[in-house]
Amino acid sequence: MHLFLQQVFSGLASGAIYASLALALVMIYRATDLVNFAQGEMAMFSTYIAWMLVNAAVPFWAAFALTLIVSFIGGMVIERVVVRPVENAPVLAAVVVTIGLLLIFNALAGWLFTYTLQEFPSPFPDRPLFGALMTTRDLGVIAVTLIMLALLFAFFRFTATGLAMRAAAQNPASARLCGIRVGRMLAIGWGLAAAIGATAGIMVAPILFLDPEMMSGVLLYAFTGALLGGITSPVGAVIGGLIVGVTENLVGTYLIASQLKLTVALILIVIVLAFRPNGLFGTAIVRRV
């Protein structure tokens, strides 16, 4: 039982990271019906920025904040420059653009920072808590995620810009008639998603070590979490990400402790989706006649 709870808690910590990236995916999907396959690599690149700052002796949390700002601006620029030309193109063209972006970021990171694994400092000490049920590091990761979620929730709920972004995602034509610049809202959405992704990257880097491939697995888990939660539901994305994290950990502990654990976790989740084809919190995909 102790082992089980231990695995659940450490699963929640990695799940919190998947949840963050899943949330980034959901934000962009809600606004444009597009799965951003470059989300993970963008986060990885952001993490390298944080890594450079930390190496330049910038205090950790200052580096964290700076990275989020840079990522936010970078995300906006990417939307306006890279994604905008395919805004009205077939979705597959936009998907291919995000795949291209994935390759570009991955190659650029490899070229600039090499493919060597880099150590990344954790802001949280690694001490056992509650009779070794969990560590302070796990708790820290979960806390950071929860704080970020609360901030996002408040932003969307209480600010005019947040409300305008929701309106633009839901009904762009009407939003324009209200004077909302839908294009700008999309850019802000990409900026926010990039900043959320950066948080995920910085949180996961001390665990996985930093290299250009760091986020590829995380992206897959995040995508799974987002879909499990219902791809259009931010709350669902968070819960989905947590479920994926716990499932992955339990499969690794009890079923199969090898590389196959990824496959087994995926199969389990696909089976769940077969019974809930729109995710746990999603609404049915409506097709127009």
Partner: peptide, 21 residues
């Protein structure tokens, strides 16, 4: 030689911009 996959990715972008279908 340094970042061939970046060029590959760029080619994908350019093709999609020029001919989205």
């Amino acid at each position: 030689d340094a970042a061939p996959w970046a060029i590959y990715g760029l080619a994908m972008l350019l093709f999609m911009y020029a001919m989205p279908r």
